[in-house]
Design a protein around this nucleic acid. Structure first.
Lengths: 228, 228
DNA sequence: CCCGGACAGATAGTAGTCCTAACGGTTGCT
DNA sequence: AGCAACCGTTAGGACTACTATCTGTCCGGG
C-alpha cells in the first residue's frame, strides 16, 4: 500500500520512532507522578501499589504485588509497611504462616475512589483522538503489552487476551466480534481490558489459540486491508 | 458506527484504559532502564541526557536540556558534570559568559552510536503490529504528545507538526500526503518524526493552521470515516 | 561609573526509589 | 529429626531529583 519514498530511506524505522514516542509519554508520566498522589498524602509508588491491590483482588501476597509492579520483594515490603502505617492497607496472616494476605482498608479504598482520575491529564490528551483512533490505539497497546508479557519483560497482566472467558471473533458483527463468557455478552476492541477483576488465566494452549485468532484477523477498522 | 452494548455500560472510558496501558509500558521502560545504559558505564538518566544532546543539535544550554528532560536545572547540572567527568560531553563558554554550551564529545557520540538500539525490546514488541497499525499508532502518539505540549505538560518537541517546514496534506496522494519543505519531498504519516534535527519552530499561527489541517483530515487508514 | 535586579548555573541538604546481601521463622520432604 | 526451599523482613548503598541558597554575569538607571 505504501509506495517507496525518499523518506523511507531517510527515516529510522517506524517502530523505533514509536518507542521514542512511548518513551516521551513515559517521561511525562514520571515527571507528573506527584500530581495525583501528593495531595492525598501518599507517594506515587504507594498509590501505584494501592491500585495494583485493588485490581488484583483481595488477599494478594507480597511477592505477587512485587512482581506486578516490577520491583523486588524487599522494596515492596517497605512500601507496604508504609501503607499499613498510614492505615490504607491491612495485613492478615495467610493459611501458610510464612505468607501474608494484603487487603485495602476502607480508608485505602476510599482514597483510591477519590484519586481514581489520575492520570487524567493524559486521558484528556488521548481524548483528542476520535472514537475509532482510540479503539485502534487500545488494540495496538494490548498487542504490544501481550508481547512484552510473552517475552518476560512484564509480569502477567489481567488482560482479556489471556483470560479463560475470552472468545475472540465469536460473532460476525464487526462492531462487537468478541465474546466474554463470564458476563456472557459480545464486546468489541473498544471494550478490551488490561486489568479485569474477573480475569482468570487460560491454559497456555487456549491462550495461544485465542491470540492467534485475535491477531490474524484484519483490524476491525479496515475490513479488507492489505494482506498482500 | 459502534452500536450500544452491555460493555459500554460496564467499562470505564476507552481513554482511561489507554492511559492504563501507556502507564504499563512506562513501567516496563522504567524497570528495564539499566539494560542498555549500564553496559556502557552510564546511568539511564545520563544516557537520556546524551540522547537529548544529540537530538537538540550542538551547543545546547543547560536550562534547555533540563526542560527537554523535564528535570530541574540543579538536577541537570549534576548530571552533566558526571558526563563531563566521564569525557562524554564537553562544556564551552557561551557568548554570554553566564551561560554554557554543551556538546557531545567524540567519545559521547560514539557511545550513542553503539547503544542506539535501546529500547529495542520494546521496538521488537511494536514489531508484532503490521505496517498499517504502526502507522496509525505513530500518528496517534504524535497527536497525544502534541496535545500534552500545548497543555504545558511536556517541553516543546522537535516534531513535524510544529515545524516551519511542515505542509500537511499538500499532496493528493493518500500514501504520501504531506510535504517537508526542508528536503522538498512528500512524506506520509509513517515518516512523521518526533525528534528531527532539522526542526525549526513555526510561528504559532502557522502551527495552529497546520495542526488543524493535520487533525481534521480523516486518518489515511479510513478515507470516509465517521465525521458525524 | 557603579549599583541593583534579573539571569545562568553550581552547590548544599533532604527525601524518595530500589537494588543486593544477609537474616529469622515455616513448611515439607527424607 | 534434619535439611533445603520458601516467604517476608532488615541493613546498607546507589541513583534520582527536589527546594533553598550561593556565585558570577549582564544590563538598565541614577
Amino acid at each position: 500500500m505504501n509506495r517507496p519514498a525518499i523518506f523511507d530511506a531517510l527515516s529510522e524505522p517506524v517502530s523505533r520512532r514509536i518507542t521514542s514516542g512511548l518513551s516521551r509519554i513515559a517521561l511525562v508520566l514520571r515527571t507528573q507522578a506527584w500530581r495525583g498522589a501528593e495531595p492525598e498524602g501518599v507517594t506515587p509508588t504507594q498509590a501505584q501499589a494501592l491500585t495494583a491491590l485493588r485490581e488484583g483482588g483481595e488477599g494478594m501476597r507480597l511477592a505477587e504485588l512485587a512482581a506486578q509492579l516490577g520491583v523486588s520483594a524487599p522494596t515492596m515490603s517497605v512500601r507496604v509497611n508504609a501503607l499499613i502505617a498510614k492505615g490504607l492497607v491491612v495485613r492478615e496472616a495467610g493459611v501458610d504462616k510464612r505468607s501474608i494476605r494484603l487487603r485495602l482498608s476502607p480508608a485505602g479504598a476510599e482514597l483510591l475512589e477519590r484519586s481514581a482520575r489520575w492520570p487524567d491529564f493524559l486521558a484528556r490528551a488521548v481524548g483528542v483522538l476520535d472514537e475509532r483512533e482510540q479503539e485502534d490505539l487500545l488494540r495496538s497497546l494490548v498487542k504490544v503489552i501481550r508481547t512484552l508479557q510473552v517475552e518476560g519483560d512484564v509480569a502477567p497482566q489481567r488482560m482479556c487476551v489471556t483470560c479463560s472467558h475470552f472468545r475472540p471473533f465469536a460473532h460476525p458483527d464487526a462492531s462487537l466480534p468478541h465474546h466474554c463468557a463470564y458476563v456472557d455478552a459480545p464486546f468489541g476492541d473498544r471494550h478490551l481490558r488490561l486489568a479485569c477483576p474477573e480475569h482468570e488465566d487460560a491454559p497456555p494452549p487456549q491462550q495461544r489459540a485465542a491470540w492467534e485468532r485475535f491477531t490474524e484477523q484484519a483490524p476491525g477498522s479496515a475490513p479488507g486491508s492489505a494482506p498482500a
